[in-house]
Measured scan of single mutants.
Amino acid sequence: APTVVALYDYTANRSDELTIHRGDIIRVFFKDNEDWWYGSIGKGQEGYFPANHVASE
Rank of each mutant, 00 (worst) to 15 (best):
residue 33 N to Q: 10
residue 57 E to V: 13
residue 15 S to E: 13
residue 40 S to Y: 11
residue 37 W to R: 01
residue 28 V to G: 00
residue 50 P to T: 01
residue 20 I to A: 07
residue 25 I to W: 06
residue 37 W to G: 01
residue 51 A to W: 06
residue 54 V to C: 14
residue 18 L to P: 11
residue 55 A to W: 09
residue 18 L to A: 03
residue 18 L to C: 03
residue 48 Y to T: 00
residue 32 D to S: 12
residue 36 W to A: 01
residue 42 G to Q: 09
residue 22 R to V: 10
residue 41 I to R: 11
residue 39 G to V: 03
residue 3 T to S: 10
residue 14 R to Q: 13
residue 26 I to G: 05
residue 7 L to W: 00
residue 26 I to F: 05
residue 2 P to T: 10
residue 30 F to G: 11
residue 57 E to M: 15
residue 29 F to C: 15
residue 14 R to T: 13
residue 13 N to C: 13
residue 1 A to N: 15
residue 39 G to P: 01
residue 25 I to R: 12
residue 14 R to E: 10
residue 41 I to A: 10
residue 16 D to H: 10
residue 44 G to N: 11
residue 15 S to R: 11
residue 17 E to F: 06
residue 54 V to L: 02
residue 43 K to V: 13
residue 29 F to I: 07
residue 31 K to R: 12
residue 26 I to R: 02
residue 49 F to L: 04
residue 39 G to S: 02
residue 14 R to Y: 12
residue 26 I to K: 04
residue 32 D to T: 13
residue 30 F to Q: 12
residue 19 T to V: 01
residue 9 D to G: 07
residue 31 K to E: 10
residue 52 N to G: 11
residue 51 A to R: 13
residue 24 D to I: 05
residue 9 D to E: 08
residue 5 V to P: 04
residue 11 T to R: 06
residue 10 Y to G: 01
residue 56 S to H: 14
residue 23 G to Q: 00
residue 54 V to Y: 02
residue 13 N to V: 14
residue 49 F to H: 04
residue 50 P to N: 06
residue 55 A to N: 08
residue 56 S to F: 11
residue 47 G to W: 01
residue 37 W to D: 05
residue 41 I to H: 05
residue 4 V to E: 02
residue 42 G to N: 07
residue 27 R to E: 15
residue 13 N to F: 07
residue 18 L to D: 01
residue 15 S to T: 11
residue 25 I to G: 02
residue 20 I to E: 07
residue 22 R to M: 05
residue 25 I to F: 05
residue 33 N to I: 04
residue 5 V to R: 11
residue 44 G to V: 05
residue 1 A to I: 12
residue 17 E to Y: 05
residue 31 K to G: 05
residue 55 A to T: 15
residue 30 F to S: 15
residue 14 R to F: 08
residue 57 E to T: 08
residue 15 S to L: 08
residue 33 N to G: 09
residue 30 F to V: 10
residue 54 V to F: 03
residue 10 Y to P: 03
residue 19 T to A: 06
residue 40 S to V: 04
residue 31 K to Y: 08
residue 43 K to G: 12
residue 10 Y to M: 04
residue 47 G to N: 06
residue 55 A to S: 14
residue 53 H to F: 11
residue 52 N to Y: 02
residue 12 A to N: 01
residue 6 A to Q: 05
residue 21 H to Q: 14
residue 38 Y to H: 04
residue 5 V to A: 03
residue 22 R to K: 15
residue 45 Q to C: 12
residue 46 E to S: 10
residue 55 A to F: 09
residue 40 S to W: 08
residue 52 N to H: 07
residue 23 G to H: 01
residue 31 K to N: 13
residue 52 N to E: 06
residue 7 L to M: 14
residue 57 E to N: 08
residue 53 H to M: 12
residue 53 H to N: 08
residue 32 D to A: 13
residue 41 I to Y: 06
residue 46 E to L: 06
